[in-house]
């Protein structure tokens, strides 16, 4: 039987930070790489993000944070996903992330950190290498 499978990605803006450029560019870019991208819009609580990730059954969650609150917001999203048994979801973080925080994010379970200057091609390739496609 022919599969019609797509990688689904949730792009989310946790917290009150309103800078959307990165989130928009990645959302457009991943769509053009053939992914189904669900964008949450601004001001999402970690609970709302986890709920959207579950309902949309996404393979990837991309969090965009430029306010400096990335460590606490990300850890809440990770905990929420774990609590709902969705810890197989790949979590990526983008925005302004100081070098010294990368490791802390990885220890929380974040698979990839993509800051300014990252290319869409690289992000897409990273996702494809980590996500199985519906076999």
């Amino acid at each position: 039987m022919v599969h019609d499978s797509k990688i689904r990605v949730l792009i989310a803006k946790p917290g009150l930070d309103g800078h959307e450029r990165g989130a928009h560019v990645v959302a457009y870019g991943l769509r053009d790489e053939g992914f189904e991208v669900i964008y949450t819009g601004l001001r999402q609580t970690p609970e709302q993000i986890v709920s959207a990730a579950i309902q949309e059954d996404v393979d990837v969650v991309g969090l965009s944070v430029l306010s400096g609150a990335h460590l606490s917001l990300t850890s809440k999203v990770m905990a929420g996903l774990r609590a709902k048994g969705a810890d197989d979801v790949l979590v990526l973080v983008g925005g302004i992330i100081p070098e010294e925080d990368r490791k802390a994010l990885q220890e929380q379970g974040v698979s990839g950190v993509f800051t300014a200057g990252s290319s869409i091609k690289d992000i897409a390739a990273f996702i494809r290498s980590r996500v199985r496609t519906g076999e």
């Binding site: 917290g15 009150l16 306010s67 609150a69 917001l73």
Partner: peptide, 10 residues
């Protein structure tokens, strides 16, 4: 509830 984690931050 929206303020959690953001108070006095930026």
């Amino acid at each position: 509830p929206y303020a959690e984690g953001e108070v006095g931050r930026v």
